[in-house]
Write a protein that binds this DNA or RNA. Structure first.
Length: 818
DNA sequence: TAAAACGTAAGT
DNA sequence: ACTTACGTTTTA
């Protein structure tokens, strides 16, 4: 935070334009190395006439990369709030920084269209081919060391392996450089712009921290990299075919450089990696020892195994006291976070692992299935897969092309950190704007909070069940009288109304605050893999299982989310299949007291259409982070959350949201509704969308809120498609409100199909006459409205019968009969 | 060394 | 011809 609010946080809005240019800043002076000639000489393809940094004397100029225009970041709109947006002229800034919006920084920058092969002068030709290997050989690959762009097919060097970099599309260390032992850039491949000079770079923190363990948690690093699946080529392809020009890394050939090379790579990771590895070796793994694939697995671990290993490690020395005891020892803050995070991981994964251990079926299945890990499309990132000692010791005849993920953790962390920083910044400014102190997210106290003493289970699993943890904690809750009353008078079980209502239970105590940056950045979310998951399940004997993926998915569709999580641990292929978003259209985390970073990343990976976060302690930061990464989200259930969290909707873009459940959101009154519904008022030059972010909402649930007609006016104005409106338990709603909703000229008059006014005690018979004006109304719930009489309902039915026939489904519950 | 600035490549 | 923003240099 400190750094984000330093110099780079200056307020561009107050700038008058040029005043910021330092007086001594020389104006033009042609400092950039690339010449126009280099830029335009696409046909000549090697813009060698370009000045290069001294340390790259042997290299050619690098092609500037450009947006992929497909990744999540690329398809976003500018946030208008980040440092770089504020610099843009369109947002009123001076336009000097010329950087893309933080939220839009491409995750997989591609070679420009003008790029051509240095050998044959032609562009990439992979589109014309089907075979993955041919594709690879026909695509343009840019060497991150010498910058040459070639078709692998056009290379003459037959004797060396190219090292594909997963971090960037079309990027590798070409066979020439690899063979020559060049180590390339230590920092990052070409085109990666999350440089250390940008605010929030993790590199800075790394340098600052002394404890190597604090630098980058290797476990986290591995998991993160494993989660991301952006490879261009599946190793499945690579392993089964022999690219003509790429020879196995382990072929005997003079490569004195390799150890050095690898050491260098390894250095990028944590020093305690080896330590950890050796610690792992000591641990017994009962289920694994029976596994015929053990040697292979030992070489390339699956995500699941690593989790298990970490877990076992932990379980050995620090199992039972999962409470705050260890927190109160001399652990530093960062370490505490580490541990908390690890514990979260255990919470999430441990259950599944244990399930797997218990399940003989799954165990045998996992044994019969060939370990995808050895040919998985997402390399096991981190040192264990980096080809350090392991790779050299164990020949891998099948890997023709070595895949490498240099610094992926750093890169991802940087990106994520940036995002988080921006989220924080936005939050900060919002907190000020709204005069709504975000008390529920105390930045400083969150780490001191006692550890949670319950297990979360898995994403989408049966998480909601454990109510015993719901302690009544009214302390931090300034409940408004009405809501409080109702919450107690109509707990779930005795609520007279069936309603799609989350039980008005006590909000879980505010426990864990939002993940800190450091926590979040460990779970970087990447766009879905470019290559589709394999269609068939590879078996140990090299053949494929006869059932196709779709058939498996049909089977998986019958499983619960918990069971799916178990299946995901069987093998890489299943892992990918089980993440199919068709299996996760609805993710229910309601009443899950604490939302952890892992859950967040799990949600993103599954891209649900419906997300139920009701009665959770999700924070604003988390929610904001989520929404911005769930472009397909249609249904968002936030009942019982705090306004502090829900206010994330004010700044996040969710134009496709169809259903929004805000029942019993604490602190959500008229002013907050205004913030939520109003279109951006910022009229700075540029294209600000003047429509409400919630303009496409069809269903809005506001039960139990102290909202008045002023909110209704905004709803009418900004939700032209609103069909279902739940205003039950809203004590300020009265006949006039209904009048507003059904007045001539309003869109709701025609769009409303369902209205719930149950337990609205100020609504009277008069409202029924207003509803006669509604053209589409099908469902009017006036149950428990003291001032509504049954007679009036019958009168309504009688009067409407000329055009539409209504019936009384229950007392004062009117339903259109079809 | 981080952040700002800027030339100009790349796209439209 | 114009906008965007990459990747580098310059500045603080």
């Amino acid at each position: 935070m400190a750094m984000s609010l330093s110099a780079d946080d200056e307020d561009y809005d107050s700038d008058t334009g040029e005043q910021q240019r330092p007086a001594n800043r020389p104006k033009p002076k042609m400092a950039a190395p690339a010449t126009p000639a280099a830029a335009t000489s696409s046909a000549s393809s090697t813009p060698a006439a370009v000045k290069l940094p001294s340390n790259r004397s042997s290299s050619g100029a690098r092609r500037r990369r450009t947006r992929c225009r497909k990744c999540e970041a690329c398809v976003r709109t500018e946030c208008g709030e980040c440092h770089f947006c504020k610099d843009m002229k369109k947002f009123g800034g001076p336009g000097r920084m010329k950087q893309s919006c933080i939220m839009r920084q491409c995750i997989a920058p591609v070679l420009p269209h003008t790029a051509v092969c240095v050998v044959c002068g032609e562009a990439g030709k992979e589109d014309t081919l089907d075979d993955e290997e041919e594709k690879f050989n026909a695509m343009l690959m840019e060497c991150s060391i010498c910058n040459e762009i070639v078709h692998p097919n056009c290379l003459k060097v037959k004797d060396a392996a190219g090292v594909v970099n997963d971090e960037l599309p079309n990027c590798w260390e070409c066979p020439k450089c690899n063979y020559a032992g060049k180590t390339g850039k230590q920092k990052r491949g070409p085109g990666f712009k999350y440089a250390s000079n940008l605010p929030g770079s993790l590199l800075r923190e790394q340098k600052a921290s002394r404890d190597p363990r604090e630098e980058v948690d290797p476990a986290a690093v591995r998991r993160k990299s494993e989660r991301d699946e952006t490879p261009r080529l599946t190793v499945d392809d690579l392993s089964t075919r022999l690219p003509p020009l790429l020879t196995p890394r382990e072929l005997p050939r003079p490569r004195p450089d390799i150890p050095n090379f690898l050491r260098k790579k390894k250095k990028l990771f944590d020093d305690d990696e080896e330590e950890e590895a050796s610690a792992k070796k000591k641990l017994k793994k009962p289920w694994k020892s029976e596994d015929p694939l053990t040697p292979k697995l030992a070489q390339m671990k699956t995500e699941e195994e690593e989790t298990s290993e970490q877990e076992e490690e932990r379980e050995e020395d620090s199992k039972p006291p999962r409470l705050s005891v260890k927190k109160e020892t001399g652990l530093g803050r960062r370490q505490q976070e580490e541990q908390e995070r690890e514990d979260e991981e255990e919470d999430e994964d441990g259950g599944v692992r244990r399930a797997r251990e218990r399940s003989p079926t799954l165990k045998s299945l996992s044994a019969s299935v060939e370990s995808d890990a050895s040919r998985c499309s997402s390399p096991r990132a981190g040192p264990s897969s980096e080809g350090s000692e392991t790779q050299e010791r164990v020949p891998r005849a099948r890997a023709r092309k070595t895949r490498r993920r240099p610094q992926s953790q750093q890169l991802s962390a940087e990106l994520s950190k940036q995002l988080n920083q921006e989220i924080r910044r936005t939050e900060h400014s919002l907190a000020n704007e709204n005069q709504q102190p975000l008390k529920s997210e105390p930045e400083d106290s969150e780490n001191e909070e006692p550890k949670r003493n319950f297990r979360n289970g898995t994403i989408g699993g049966d998480l909601g069940g454990d109510r015993t943890h719901l302690r009544s904690n009214l302390r931090a809750r300034e409940m408004n009288g009405t809501a409080w009353e109702l919450r107690h008078f109509y707990p779930a079980q005795i609520t007279p109304l069936g309603f799609n209502r989350s039980a008005p239970i006590l909000r879980p105590p505010p426990t864990r605050s939002p993940p800190k940056c450091v926590q979040m950045e460990r779970h970087v979310i990447r766009p879905p893999p470019i290559c589709p998951p394999p269609d068939r399940l590879p078996l140990v004997d090299g053949r494929s299982h006869m059932l196709q993926r779709e058939a498996w998915l049909a089977v998986f569709s019958h499983l619960s989310h918990r069971e799916l999580c178990v299946c995901m641990r069987v093998c890489r292929t299943w892992n990918r299949w089980c993440c199919d978003k068709r299996l996760w259209t609805k993710i229910d985390l309601s009443r899950c007291k604490s939302i952890t970073p892992l859950m967040l990343s799990g949600i993103i990976r599954r891209q649900p259409i419906t997300l139920d976060l009701s009665w959770t302690n999700i924070s604003k930061k988390q929610l904001s982070w989520l929404i911005n990464r769930l472009p397909g989200l249609r249904v968002l259930l936030l009942s019982g959350c705090s306004w502090a969290a829900v206010s994330a909707l004010c700044t996040s873009s969710c134009p496709l949201l169809r259903t929004l459940d805000l029942q019993w959101v604490e602190g959500l009154k008229d002013p907050q509704m205004r913030d939520l519904l109003s279109p951006p008022t910022d009229n700075r030059p540029g294209q600000m969308d003047t429509r409400s972010k919630l303009r496409n909402v069809l269903e809005l649930r506001l039960a139990g809120l102290d909202v008045t007609d002023s909110s209704l006016r905004l709803i009418i104005k900004n939700m032209p498609l609103l069909a279902r409106l739940d205003l039950s338990y809203c004590n300020h709603i009265n006949d006039q409100s209904v009048n507003l909703l059904t007045a001539a000229g309003t869109t709701t008059r025609d769009s409303l199909t369902d209205i719930n006014l149950s337990v609205c005690n100020r609504v009277t018979d008069q409202s029924l006459s207003y509803f006669k004006r509604c053209g589409s109304i099908c469902w009017i719930d006036l149950r428990f409205c003291k001032q509504v009489s049954r007679q009036a309902c019958e009168r309504f039915i009688a009067e409407m019968s000329v055009s539409v026939s209504f019936g009384l489904k229950e007392d004062k519950l009117l339903q259109k009969l079809c």
